[in-house]
Design a protein around this nucleic acid. Structure first.
Lengths: 196, 196
DNA sequence: CGCATAAACGGAGGCGCCTCCGTTTAACCT
DNA sequence: AGGTTAAACGGAGGCGCCTCCGTTTATGCG
């Protein structure tokens, strides 16, 4: 195995140290800005908050969609990593529930980016498929473990659960959104634990 | 029947004379601009070319999509009207062929508007359906006449033909696009006339 | 007509997007 | 270390989007 890789793993190789630093800072800042201002955040603001010039932002991310993509990918990777970590530190059913809650947190940040994501989806669906695969794999691992050890029922497949989770997307916007989503998850999890 | 209605029929009612005039001029100018510059035309340019202020454009069409919608609708109405006229002045098979050629001309103007149209399609699909209905009706009339009078074979339905025509959309962009499209139509029409 | 008034006009200005290019700096070589 | 150079930086500036509001004008009424 090669030495540890401390920086974000989804960045292109062979970047000068300062470039890598700025790139990471931009993605991090953008993630926060998109989460807060729902994808409508101004790129100039993001550059300013990240402490770099607007030119630097545009060199790293030629279009808004490139930046969205980087944020999207980073968060999906984080989500997949969380699954592994949760599996190692919690009972399987708790890990599963906690992971789905994080999944909802993730989706919450995406609500306002619908437009950019749609563009991304139609113009570069390969990336989307890859992201979906990551999520699916993570959920699959958690569910397999939990069900094989008898913590949850066995007649529910990953696809079913994923489908149920994605339905959260269609909950109408509003102040109660998050609350509703978490109630729905509680319901799903109780259902899963009820061994038929 | 009420008196003749000389102005564009898809405009809202009860507009002051100057407002109606400016609105029509804007739609007309926009249609030309979108056709030429592929939907990327600047709204400021369109207003300037139409001889009105930018404020006037925005009062009539609050977003780019509203203007796109107006152009889109106007052209579909023109297309439907052309079907009636062609049917009255040409043999049925010629009318059919000529109309499909105009249909291609129409689609050619839409190639660059894909983005705006997609937004329109997802955010207001009712309009889209209405437009599609207009086109379908026009084609249906022409095809019925032609086939009932024995000018074209009878085993092809409107839906089939519409589907074949819409495939033109997927011809890759390029200088030869129009030529390819017309070759395809010639092929379709010869096929239609070949009475099995 | 001439007046009142509501409707419509139009463009200045603020903001965001993106490019271009002069300046800075990390990385490599001797 | 000091020098060289290509990579990276950053912000000014041009352009388009959109809003806001002071000015103009069509229209209906006495």
């Amino acid at each position: 195995m090669s030495p540890a890789e401390p920086t974000s793993c989804s960045a292109p190789a062979k970047l000068r140290a300062d470039a890598r630093r700025n790139r990471d800072k931009l993605v991090e800042t953008a993630a926060a800005a998109f989460a807060e201002k729902a994808g409508e955040a101004s790129l100039e603001d993001i550059a300013r908050q990240a402490g770099v010039g607007i030119g630097t932002l545009y060199r790293h991310f030629p279009t808004r969609e490139h930046l969205v993509e980087a944020v999207y990918r980073r968060e999906l990777e984080g989500l997949a990593a969380a699954a592994t970590e949760l599996a190692a530190t919690h009972p399987p059913d708790v890990a599963l529930e906690e992971w789905t809650r994080r999944f909802v947190g993730y989706m919450a940040t995406k609500r306002g980016m619908a437009n950019s994501l749609r563009i991304l989806m139609t113009s570069n669906s390969a990336l989307f498929a890859e992201g979906a695969g990551l999520v699916r794999g993570a959920l699959d691992g958690l569910l397999q473990t939990a069900s094989s050890q008898g913590f949850v029922r066995k007649d529910i497949e990953t696809t079913d659960l994923l489908h149920a989770l994605s339905s959260i997307y269609s909950i109408p916007d509003g102040p109660e959104w998050r609350q509703r989503a978490h109630r729905l998850i509680g319901l799903l999890m109780d259902g899963l634990r009820a061994r038929k």
